[in-house]
């Protein structure tokens, strides 16, 4: 039983290490600011999720079992989209990305609309 848990910990660690690395590698490799957002926001969160999973299994293995790590995981999964949205808004605001198309229904994107009201 302990052996099986150890294998599970090892696999989670390897998966977490792989995805964390891919996230940061994507951050360095991709060439456009908006593309770079994709690497860390997804691969990063799943990588840390797998590392936390390994820590959780280890805590049950060593006797004082706890599922506190779920909290960090949930917090990261809730906040990662918000950080990504804010960074995307910065890219749109500063114009470091391709110009987005016009929205099909309303007059303007929210980030641009703020800029327009400040200018007039």
């Amino acid at each position: 039983m302990t052996g099986f848990a150890d294998i599970l910990i090892g696999l989670s660690l390897l998966i977490g290490a792989l995805f964390t690395f891919v996230g940061s590698f994507g951050l360095l490799k991709l060439d456009m600011p908006m593309k770079r957002l994709h690497g860390p926001t997804k691969a990063g969160t799943l990588g840390i999720g797998a590392l936390l999973m390994a820590a959780m299994i280890d805590s049950f293995l060593s006797g004082h079992g706890t599922i506190q790590h779920i909290l960090i995981m949930a917090f990261l999964f809730v906040t990662a989209p918000i950080s990504a949205l804010f960074i995307a808004k910065v890219h749109i605001h500063t114009g470091t990305c391709q110009k987005p198309p016009q929205p099909s229904e309303d007059s303007q994107w929210a980030t641009k609309a703020v800029v327009d009201t400040q200018e007039t």
Binding site: G3, D6, G10, L11, L13, A17
Partner: peptide, 8 residues
Amino acid sequence: PEVFADYA
């Protein structure tokens, strides 16, 4: 398994 987890 222990050694595998350590290497991981």
